[in-house]
Amino acid sequence: MATGRNDRGIRKFIGKLVNMVCFGIMFFSSYQIISILYDYYANRQVLAEIQEVYQESRDGEDSQEGGDMKGIRSSFTELLRINPDIVGWIEIPGTDISYPVLQAENNEFYLTRNYKKEKSRAGSIFMDYRNDVKDLKRNVILYGHRMKDDSMFGQLDKYLSEPFFRRHRTIYFDTLYESYDAEVFAVYKTTTDFYYIDTDFSTDEEYLSFVRRLLDRSVYKTGLAIGPDDPVLTLSTCDYTFPGGKGRLVIHARLKKKM
């Protein structure tokens, strides 16, 4: 009889332990989900603030006299007061992408920080540290996370739909010094084994050979001519169809200064 009572006691204890473990797992999972959702919300609120600042500055640009003594456009004056690391703004019609472009001394800082330099799961859209915003040449690279709430570069995958690609070939890219239209000519998935982020080309032929490799990988054929003096805007984000975190979704566009 004692053995029977002991067995029931053990089973009861194990049952309680299992319930506690299940409750703990459920509580931890709920906490993580709430934390992620709050991060998404906070990120969108922070971005809405700077979008409003930029829109007001851009609306007033025509009524202001040029830029400052360094040639910086007046539409960026307020943005630079917020963060002097802001070097541009990217906007893609048909998406929610309308964000400041940051640049640091490396390609790690803004992976996990917003434009206020606060820690952020979403990070920022940022320009490769090797690019010179005063003189955009050859391959100009912008990076951004592919967030699951479609923020940052989360909507770049729309370019995998040919109808969307055909209707939204033009990306708008403003910098501190110039305003550009960027015509998309290549879209593809790849891995980090393909070095599409090269910025150093010793000859025109080396650069044009690089461009041909980009064209060859594209899922679309546009016939757009890229010359040795045409800078390419490269948008790079993650692609989760490849294992090991090596997958990338890449968009290339030809940069042309607005007249």
Rank of each mutant, 00 (worst) to 15 (best):
Gly66Ile: 03
Glu52Lys: 10
Tyr99His: 07
Gln55Tyr: 01
Ile34Phe: 14
Phe27Trp: 13
Gln32Thr: 11
Ser124Ala: 07
Tyr41Gln: 11
Asp62Pro: 03
Gly88Ala: 05
Tyr99Trp: 03
Gly71Glu: 11
Glu78Ser: 11
Tyr31Met: 15
Val140Glu: 04
Asn107Phe: 08
Asn43Pro: 04
Tyr41His: 14
Glu56Met: 01
Pro84Ala: 02
Ser63Gln: 07
Leu102Ser: 12
Ser57Met: 13
Lys119Leu: 13
Ile90Tyr: 07
Gly67Trp: 03
Lys117Pro: 03
Asn114Arg: 08
Gln45Tyr: 13
Leu37Pro: 00
Lys70Arg: 15
Glu52Cys: 03
Met69Val: 14
Asn114Leu: 01
Glu91Cys: 09
Pro84Trp: 02
Lys134Ile: 02
Ser30Glu: 05
Met127His: 13
Asn114Met: 01
Ile50Met: 05
Ser74Tyr: 02
Glu65Ala: 06
Glu65Gln: 02
Gly123Ile: 11
Gly94Glu: 00
Tyr110Gln: 06
Tyr54Trp: 13
Leu111Cys: 06
Glu56Ala: 01
Ser57Pro: 05
Ile86Leu: 08
Met127Arg: 14
Ser74Val: 06
Gln45Ala: 12
Asp85Phe: 01
Ile86Trp: 05
Phe76Val: 13
Gln55Leu: 03
Asn43Gln: 09
Ser74Ile: 08
Phe126Tyr: 15
Tyr115Thr: 14
Val53Gln: 02
Glu78Lys: 15
Glu61Ala: 14
Asp85Lys: 09
Arg121Asn: 03
Asn106Thr: 02
Tyr115Ser: 09
Glu91Ser: 14
Arg44Asn: 15
Ala104Tyr: 13
Val87Gln: 08
Pro93Ser: 03
Ser35Phe: 08
Ser120Cys: 10
Ser30Cys: 08
Lys117Val: 11
Glu61Gln: 09
Tyr99Glu: 11
Ile92Val: 15
Tyr110Phe: 12
Lys117Trp: 02
Glu56Thr: 04
Phe27Arg: 09
Gly88Pro: 15
Leu102Lys: 11
Leu37Ala: 08
Leu47Ala: 12
Tyr31Arg: 14
Leu111Gly: 06
Arg138Asn: 10
Ser98Ala: 09
Tyr31His: 12
Asp62Glu: 10
Trp89Val: 07
Ser63Phe: 06
Gln51His: 02
Arg121Asp: 01
Leu47Gln: 14
Asp135Ser: 15
Lys117Asp: 13
Ser74Gly: 04
Ile125Asp: 06
Gln64Trp: 01
Tyr54Met: 14
Ser63Ile: 13
Tyr129Asp: 05
Tyr99Cys: 02
Asp39His: 05
Thr95His: 13
Asn139Arg: 11
Glu78Asn: 11
Ile97His: 01
Gly123Pro: 04
Ser120Ile: 07
Arg44Val: 12
Tyr40His: 09
Ser75Met: 07
Ala48Gly: 05
Glu61Trp: 04
Glu108Ile: 14
Phe126Asn: 08
Val46Ala: 12
Ser98Gly: 02
Ser120Ala: 13
